[in-house]
Design a protein around this nucleic acid. Structure first.
Lengths: 373, 373
DNA sequence: GTGAAAGCGCTAACAT
DNA sequence: ATGTTAGCGCTTTCAC
């Protein structure tokens, strides 16, 4: 038995004597014999009418099923919609399988609910047209662009639309607020740690290079054409450490995962570990890939870290054992939302480029390479 | 004076020659010397004009920074917004720390992106007024109500607004589409399994009872006033199994977690295991609570399942070892979104109450109780 | 304290 | 193939 059934009683909803006009301010006004303005004021400007009248209006509105003025009409008239959008790499649904993205969204939503803002998730599509449409068709006042390829048409569409924007995990653009971490520095520190343990043969499992996600072993040319800036930055970090140690970057296999998942890490690591002169350390660009690599190594009978060291990135809760880099996903989301809201409010913004700190977490999946090697 | 008064600050606009009119169809039309209709058609009805003209229009629109017709105006005119909302228990930001909810949202978003729909996450608040406002102020065509307390004002607001609705993990209402699982049956089967192993002293760690989340040990009276239907159903399931085995339900301590988190499970389980006549089996209503309980048991030096058995619910990836109940979170999300979209499209709906199957997963955290007991 | 009217930007009849 | 026009429902002057 439903608690709500009271509302479905015949009195509340008679067998449609009248054609059931949609509830609007006008309907309420007519039904009450007052003007539309008065009804509008009852909702939006309580000080403009007597308390008693306001009560009456609101009661009648509720009776007719109008809980508040129509949102679309209000947005049109006001030029604001009290909602902000978030645009994510490519398929939105992937965001929910990426722990970092989920934490980011949590941060954003926290600020939204504290400020009575709606949060609109904008689905992205492969086609440029459709992408522009997706942004254009959203009733939003501003947009957070999160981890989108540099050349993604959706980003271009958003900029074209001259919509207030905040960039996160994107290349910086001077005129736009930016939140992020120094991926390059963090990855260099991580790789330096690994190299300092004595490893000479490294391998990299990378996140997507570009919107094509070709996947697999990456030539030098492809490495230089990466359009996901985060991937590019992390790779530069690894490379800097490798070259600083006097090792050949050419000799480091770099494979691209088409999607950030444990299974992909497993598959790619399996291939990496199968070759004769296998790497003694694997640098994975996310913890999920690293967890897959861990599983692959163990499956092949290797002991981690004695036979092979593995490092990740993100410090997600599920990866307590991994040597990794910790970054404040949730805080990124909060800051991005705050920055956007303050931009929309026309407040003078705090420093527009906010770089957040990362921390290297050395744990049990990295150690010295095997003696024999 | 235009309603766009937001531009109050004169400095807001750079010292540009012309006052930088906002890009609209009208502006494009004037700039090109064609009618507004033509511009509108270029965007929305390509068959209504020559390809050449359409190209010209679109190019000019892009030049002026108009990527598509204004969303609010379009929604107002059309009466549709191409977006659907999701309403979640209480704080939206909690949803992102609940693995089941994240999977659910993933399912919803998958269907949204396949159908070019925006996904609006509606923040909820404690006050009834604010809640109604939140729903009312969203430009959405329909709403998925997911796991909200039976007496939540937001649910009432949505129903009042006569908005197309789909209920998920909620009490059924005859006239509304519903997606869910039989939590009671699943929990009964789970508890029967535990009881069949020989346990006589059980304890329950429950999810929230109501929007107050008092937390702690729950009297019989409080158990009967639960307004989160999922919690109530699971509890009924446990109880049925206990009573069927001839045990006293009164003797089973039931504690309420104020939030679904591992830490809460840890705390509550620690308290449960501290008493003299401690339970030999703990039934936790989610895997997260169960994982916390597992940690608590091990922390106290108990061997699981030899000293104490622990069962969860949900079968989340992080809980591979747990005896638990598997339920199709992502599919729930997909079905809910599909159902809502087909409702909005006016298509004849498939069976409106869809009950999805659950599976009991017996794994290593449950076993026979200790001999001595 | 209340009402009349203008118009936000758009789409769909109905012209032509 | 293109243009004219009437609202969609709302908020906000500006009168009273």
């Amino acid at each position: 038995m439903s608690p709500r059934q009271g509302r479905q009683t015949p009195e509340a909803d008679p067998p449609s004597a009248q054609p059931q006009r949609r509830a609007t301010l006008k309907l309420v006004a007519e039904s009450l014999g007052v003007s539309i303005t008065t009804v509008s004021n009852a909702f939006s400007r309580p000080d403009q009418l007597s308390e008693a009248l306001r009560e009456r209006v609101l009661a009648e509105a509720a009776r007719l099923g109008l809980s508040s003025p129509d949102a679309a009409a209000r947005s049109l008239r006001l030029g604001r919609s009290a909602s902000i959008g978030v645009m994510y790499t490519d398929r939105l649904s992937y965001a929910f399988s990426d722990p970092g993205a989920v934490l980011f969204l949590q941060g954003v939503s926290r600020v939204c609910e504290a400020n009575g803002q709606q949060l609109v998730l904008i689905p992205s599509t492969s086609s440029a047209d459709a992408a522009a449409t997706a942004v254009g068709r959203s009733t939003i006042d501003g947009l957070i662009v999160y981890s989108v390829a540099d050349d993604d048409p959706v980003l271009a569409a958003a900029i074209d639309r001259r919509m207030p924007l905040v960039l996160v995990d994107q290349p910086r653009i001077d005129s736009l607020p930016w939140i992020g971490v120094d991926d390059e520095k963090a990855c260099r520190a991580l790789a330096e740690h690994v190299v300092s343990l004595g490893h000479r043969r490294l391998a990299v499992i990378a996140t997507e290079f570009d919107r094509d996600r070709a996947g697999g072993r990456a030539t030098k040319a492809r490495q230089e054409a990466i359009t996901f800036s985060t991937t590019a930055a992390r790779l530069r970090g690894y490379r800097a450490a490798v070259e600083k140690a006097g090792l050949s970057w050419q000799g480091v296999p770099v494979v691209e995962a088409r999607e950030n998942s444990e299974d992909n890490g497993y598959r790619l690591a399996t291939a990496l570990l199968r070759v004769k002169n296998r790497p003694t350390a694997i640098l994975a660009m996310t913890d999920q890939l690293a967890l897959g690599a861990l599983r692959a190594a163990e499956r092949r009978g290797f002991i981690v870290p004695d036979d092979v060291s593995i490092a990740g990135y993100d410090d997600i809760p599920a990866a307590r054992v991994l040597t990794t880099v910790s970054q404040p996903h949730e805080e990124k989301g909060r800051r991005a939302a705050e920055q956007l809201l303050s931009l929309l409010a026309g407040r003078t913004s705090p420093p527009r480029h906010q770089e957040l700190a990362t921390t290297l977490r050395v744990r049990v999946t990295t150690g010295a390479p095997p003696r024999s090697e």
